[in-house]
């Protein structure tokens, strides 16, 4: 049982984790802004920028939203969403493909 009956000790452990993640997020924010001042070519810039953003988003989802230790039903629902989200993100490809 992840959050139902947590002891005070366990909660304190969690709190420590939150601070670590907080530090990591701040560092990554500095990094992502820093990268933008390098004025990389667009392809590398997008790749790097989105990689850092995904890392940050992953940290938030995993630790703050507790997705690292969640119930099966939530995972299965989110997998479905991820697949459909992927299709949604293919729309640009479909849209622009027609012109070629």
């Amino acid at each position: 049982m992840s959050h139902g009956e947590m002891t005070v000790e366990e909660v304190k452990k969690h709190v420590k984790k939150y601070y670590v993640v907080f530090g990591a997020l701040l560092c990554l924010t500095v990094i992502t802004v820093g990268i933008s001042y390098l004025h990389l070519p667009i392809f590398q810039a997008v790749l790097l920028g989105m990689a850092v953003a995904s890392l940050k988003g992953g940290l938030v989802a995993a630790y703050f939203m507790h997705l690292i230790d969640e119930k099966k039903i939530i995972y299965s629902m989110l997998w479905l969403t991820v697949v459909l989200f992927a299709f949604c993100m293919l729309i640009p490809l479909f849209t622009l493909h027609g012109y070629k």
Binding site: L80, L84, F87, F94, H97, G98, Y99, K100
Partner: peptide, 20 residues
């Protein structure tokens, strides 16, 4: 599930490549 990935069959006439 499949109903999510058939949408563009409404658009055969509106400019999609052959692959799509």
């Amino acid at each position: 599930f499949m109903s999510f990935i058939v949408w563009a069959h409404h658009m055969f006439m509106t400019g999609m490549g052959v692959t799509m």
